[in-house]
Design a protein around this nucleic acid. Structure first.
Lengths: 344, 344
DNA sequence: CTGAAAGCGCTTACAG
DNA sequence: CTGAAAGCGCTTACAG
């Protein structure tokens, strides 16, 4: 009993009908078939183990039922969480997902984009690693629906779905002020290529002072612990209660290492990060984070894309999602330590 | 300038030649074309921004150039690392990868398998979540090359690529003995569905006693910290230097939480895990692990698959890979703590 | 409700 | 070295 290799014709023959009817049976026009015919086709298809060849269907107007997703760094838990959300939402709508990783390499990104296009994906969800304006512009121009995930691309007039970065920074600052910190060091990876990093950095620089905070900024070219040590050391000795705010999960990891290297106690020197990770609740006394609603963001991206595809009664899609504060011991000045503060 | 939408015919027309020649230009028979013709086609294709439609090629004998990968749990860093290795290797060979996640759900697994088949993948790399014998048997029977990754499937006579589980357990036990531990608690998720878990568990039960260790075993149905607390508490009070060995990364996380809840010091009570994670070096005094060579495993899987596809001079492929020991403070009985013991 | 026919974009014998 | 033709497995007007 061959599984997927039976063909439309074989089913038609066995069922004593035409290709057309069998095709209809597996498409949206099944209701135009008489119950009797349906039953015959059903049986024939079943005994043959027939499954439509989606590549053939895609070729002839039926649509490939494929969505493409480009991910900047698949080994980043945040990206994986997005992939997971997108994949679930896509499947729920009858689409499959082909995911291409670019390892943050703009050259590879171009290649992967071309590959995705070559497979005739019906839509694209792009978490850009560089600024692939030209290829994306070309794709849009050729009619491929497209949404940007988490990161914008210069000049590209497309929907962007992701965290509300301004709100995230505001929430972080507010939390730190409330906890009694008076000076904040913001640490970010190099913001050159990633719009998200820029947005957070800029907002930080705008908002820190108005809230009465002394602010400093550290831009990292490397995530090696050594890269943060000098600045962190100096900062920890600065006057007044001081806290470090990390621009994303990678940075939080680098700084947790830094704290450890220097033997700094978290809390007395505050530590807070954007992105929630497995181990943030684990490292004593728990690292305070801003969790991103990755599933919601992924779902929104798919909805947004499908809106473009169907172009009927576009559902409203939330573009800027609010983070969720997970307060823990690392932003408590007092030495009181909860036994294990998980999420609130 | 439409990017991918130009067709073979348009290129042929512009170049003043036939479809056949253009097709040859983009296939393996390019050398059968005169330099002059090549040049013309090259130019035409370039100005049109032509890229072959891979779905059409796949339809007609050319091969889809697609590999399918089924992953049991895409949010598990270990699985992601495998995906990463597989994707790289596939790309290096000119294949693209379509990844389907099953979230450890055997029902979803069947669906995803069907989807993969429907897209005419040329080969399948399966990290099974259940025991999808029947569908896999059918696929193999219908000629789709297939390799199993990390986990076996009952009765299925296919190549399995993954960790050398016996060696891993042996290495762990040897390390623990050397460090002076005398009794070991092995903790595993429920081994019912996953061959890997079974293999490790069985090996542990065989090898612990011969090495002079008192052994105990704990099977987890839940990864909630509460699930481990009673056993862990009792075990920690047992006579003689005692260590916990975790069957995979999830379990290591659960136990690290358990240690924290109970206020147990790592080292005096040993903790060791299979699978290396970001934070293992971070949690003081560092958790000793056995790192899996995920890239090598991924590459091996692709090589193995492609061997089947090409069936020419099959390269030798390593099926059982050795882990790498990352010794840290969590398996040091003496209270001496290195400042941050990363990998050796 | 059902089917014959044309065609999607490509590849591959088969001739020249 | 080059091309005309048939066909991959499907869908979709167009007729009946």
């Amino acid at each position: 009993m061959p599984p997927s290799r039976a063909t439309l014709i074989e089913v038609a023959t066995l069922a004593g009908t035409s290709k057309t009817s069998v095709s209809r049976f597996f498409g949206p026009e099944r209701d135009k078939l008489s119950p009797a015919l349906c039953a015959r086709i059903e049986r024939a298809a079943h005994t043959l183990g027939y499954r439509p060849n989606l590549m053939a269907r895609g070729l002839k107007g039926g649509g490939s039922r494929l969505l493409g997703m480009l991910v900047a760094d698949i080994r980043n838990p945040f990206s994986v969480a997005l992939v997971h959300g997108v994949e679930q939402a896509a499947r729920a709508q009858g689409y499959s997902l082909i995911v291409c990783n670019t390892d943050n390499d703009p050259v590879l990104e171009q290649t992967q984009l071309a590959t995705l296009a070559a497979y005739q994906v019906e839509g694209l969800i792009i978490n850009a690693s560089g600024q692939p304006e030209a290829p994306l512009q070309a794709l849009m121009h050729s009619g491929v629906p497209l949404v940007l995930l988490d990161r914008e691309v210069n000049q590209l007039k497309a929907d962007v779905i992701g965290l509300d970065n301004a709100q995230a920074i505001d929430m972080a600052l507010e939390h730190l002020v409330l906890q009694g910190y008076r000076s904040v060091l913001y640490v970010s990876e190099s913001p050159t290529q990633a719009s998200t990093r820029q947005a957070r950095l800029i907002r930080f620089e705008q908002q820190a002072r108005p809230r009465g905070l002394t602010s400093r900024t550290l831009l990292l070219n490397s995530l090696e612990p050594d890269a943060v040590l000098p600045t962190l050391k100096a900062f920890a000795q600065s006057a007044g209660p001081a806290a470090v705010l990390c621009g994303n999960g990678n940075v939080t990891l680098a700084l947790a290492r830094g704290f450890q290297r220097l033997g700094l106690a978290m809390g007395p020197v505050g530590l807070m990060g954007i992105d929630e990770l497995d181990w943030c609740a684990l490292i004593a006394p728990g690292i305070t984070t801003l969790a991103q609603p990755t599933d919601a963001i992924g779902r929104a991206a798919v909805t947004c894309l499908l809106n473009q595809l169907k172009s009927t009664t576009p559902a409203t899609v939330l573009h800027r999602h609010a983070p969720r504060l997970c307060p823990r011991g690392s932003t408590q000045l007092s030495s009181f330590t909860p036994e294990e503060s998980n999420n609130p």
